[in-house]
Computed example of a mutant assay.
Amino acid sequence: MQGAPAAKIILAPKVREQLLNDLEERFAGHMSRHKGVVWAKVRAKLEASPDKLAALREMERTGGEPDVVGHDKKPDVYVFVDCSAETPEGRVSVCYDRKGWESRKEHRPKTNAMDMAAAMGVEMMTEDEYMELQKLGEFDRKTSSWLKTPAQVRDLGGALYGERRYGRVFVGHNGAQSYYAVRGFRGVLKV
């Protein structure tokens, strides 16, 4: 999988409507994640952004259970993140990035988190975004998620990941070439 951005995809009307219904149902079921946000306004933004809907569809398809977790009033942007209890199942067993993937001489996984995120049309979650997500619930109690890693760490060969264990949230590091069956990544999409 190359790191090229997702192609412009227009969802079929039935798929689009089902996705919007699923997102609305999740939105209504978790109002504490987005106090003061009105679904009709979110839906209008989504309907005006078919490429963002396609990215949300990929987040959903790979098990992310995306939901709105914020609204930046200027410039009027809604923030969706993967809110699945564990790291999305369709995005596990991946190295951090292409450089880490290429450095593996044996047992390479199919892809890497950074390329997969780019192909989906989303960003990887930063450490700060991950800590904010953990304030909304308990995520990654059995799994872990790669986090967008600062250049000074990545330049030294490392990459960050987050997880919740023992009632606490931890951010740790591994070599960017490592991968585990229970480590994937969480996406962020701004609409």
Rank of each mutant, 00 (worst) to 15 (best):
C83L: 10
Y130E: 05
N21A: 15
D128K: 13
F170Q: 10
K8T: 13
Y78T: 12
G36M: 03
E17C: 02
E102L: 15
E25L: 11
G29R: 02
L23D: 03
M1G: 13
S145G: 06
Y161A: 08
R168A: 10
Y161H: 14
M114C: 10
V37S: 06
N112S: 02
Y78C: 02
K142S: 11
V188C: 04
M131P: 00
Y161V: 02
R43D: 08
R33S: 01
A54K: 04
D67K: 00
E60G: 00
Y78K: 06
L147R: 06
G157V: 07
E102M: 12
C95R: 02
Y96V: 05
G36K: 06
G29K: 09
L19F: 04
A117E: 05
E24N: 11
K190D: 06
S103F: 09
I9Y: 00
L20I: 15
R141I: 12
E127I: 00
S178A: 12
Y166K: 14
E89W: 07
W101M: 03
H71I: 06
V68R: 05
P5W: 02
V188E: 01
V79M: 10
R186P: 01
V92L: 12
G167W: 09
W39L: 07
N112H: 13
L11G: 05
S32R: 11
G100Y: 06
M59T: 01
R108L: 01
H30Y: 10
K74D: 13
W39I: 04
P88G: 05
V42N: 02
K190T: 11
C95V: 01
V171A: 04
S144E: 11
D22L: 10
G70C: 06
W146K: 10
V15N: 06
G187V: 09
K41V: 02
S178P: 00
K14I: 07
L53C: 05
A12Q: 14
A54W: 04
R61C: 00
W39F: 05
D97I: 09
V92P: 00
D115A: 08
L11A: 07
